[in-house]
């Protein structure tokens, strides 16, 4: 076996998905290497969220299969955790209960799950807000709660559906930097849906460009040179700038 090939945490094989007469995904195959961040990038309506939800097991594929660590996906599972675009926090629950909710559903005892939740609340920088309710937090803080919830179930694969699109630009930049840290330290596989070219190139080990109607993978781009550089110098890196330009050139014709 060739050891230079990275193992795939998630493999999508020949997936088709129709919504009535609309063909959303046609014969889509894509690999997501373990321990890396792969972005799904494309114009709106290109089915990237559909693909993510099929991988999450929230939507069934019409045909084809999704493998997570070699096992076919039949529904949601503890090996995957989802981060939602609109945060999906329970407004009646405090930060700590929201973060511990995944563990609560698994039947973990209260003291134990709250200890885990405390740890991840601290990890996302929300110490002191354990007993706050979502309506008392800013948009950025709410998404940190959503992120802590996904981390606390310790899933190998994190599925992030445009997680930063509902927060302001400065918060978003901070999130992107923090995300790079997470990818390096957490040893998890990240699947990241975004419609921002800059964001995709900035955070990804691999960018899969999807083209719409029906969706297929048109290109896979792997940034090489700047991945291990300091977070502050990435945006000035020539390779970063070239990739952003190149992707824009190929997507431009699909933007109405």
């Amino acid at each position: 076996m060739d050891t230079t090939i990275t193992e795939n945490a998630v493999a999508v094989r020949n997936v088709y998905k129709n919504y009535g007469d609309v063909e959303a995904l046609r014969d889509l195959s894509l690999d997501f290497p373990k321990g890396q961040l792969t972005s799904l990038l494309g114009p709106s309506g290109c089915g990237k969220t559909t693909l993510l939800k099929i991988i999450a097991g929230l939507l069934p594929a019409d045909s084809g299969e999704v493998l997570v660590n070699g096992k076919p996906v039949t529904g949601p599972g503890p090996d995957r955790a989802f981060v939602f675009q609109d945060f999906a926090l329970m407004p009646w629950a405090s930060t700590i209960r929201n973060v511990a909710f995944g563990l609560e559903l698994r039947g973990v005892a209260k003291s134990e799950r709250e200890a885990v939740a405390e740890k991840y609340i601290a990890a996302v920088g929300l110490t002191g807000f354990e007993n706050s309710y979502p309506h008392e937090l800013s948009g950025g803080m709410r998404q940190r709660v959503g992120l802590a919830r996904a981390l606390s179930v310790n899933a190998e694969v994190l599925l992030m559906d445009e997680p930063f699109s509902a927060v302001d630009e400065q918060t978003r930049r901070k999130f992107q930097e923090d995300l790079l840290g997470l990818v390096q330290n957490e040893n998890k596989t990240f699947l990241f849906v975004t419609h921002s070219i800059e964001e995709a190139v900035y955070v990804s080990n691999q960018v899969a460009i999807l083209l719409p109607r029906p969706s297929r993978v048109s290109e896979i781009i792997r940034p090489r040179g700047f991945r291990n550089k300091d977070v502050d110098s990435i945006r000035r890196d020539p390779e970063y700038l070239d990739l952003v330009d190149k992707i824009w050139a190929s997507l431009k014709s699909y933007v109405e």
Partner: peptide, 12 residues
């Protein structure tokens, strides 16, 4: 909110 239901499902 639909995503609250999806959230619950996705966390099992």
């Amino acid at each position: 909110n639909r995503s609250l239901i999806e959230m619950a499902r996705s966390f099992g």
